[in-house]
């Protein structure tokens, strides 16, 4: 199976957040690499996705969709830097 990238997470994340998180900049907890969430290497299907750092391949973000809730695991990201509207 070919991986996708973080661009493909935009819809799922946009159901949770009112801003586009794929344009946010993550900092990887494993290696310190920082880039747009859109650049993460994305594995998985609609019920569960894993975004890995393209630099060190550590897991940066997990999104798991259950029928009645979503689990978002960001422990692989030291921080997210989000551009504010109009910037």
């Amino acid at each position: 199976m070919n991986p996708l990238d973080g661009n493909a997470m935009a819809g799922d994340l946009r159901e949770l957040f009112t801003v586009d998180v794929t344009a946010a900049r993550y900092t990887c907890a494993g290696c310190g690499h920082a880039d747009a969430v859109a650049t993460l290497i994305l594995w998985g299907q609609e019920m569960g996705q894993v975004g890995r750092c393209p630099h060190c391949t550590d897991v940066v973000v997990r999104v798991v969709q259950a029928p009645d809730r979503v689990f978002l695991d960001l422990r692989g990201s030291v921080r997210l830097e989000l551009p504010l509207a109009g910037s």
Partner: peptide, 9 residues
């Protein structure tokens, strides 16, 4: 469908 999404590319 849902969208538009994606603000990076």
């Amino acid at each position: 469908l849902r969208g538009p999404v994606g603000g990076w590319f």
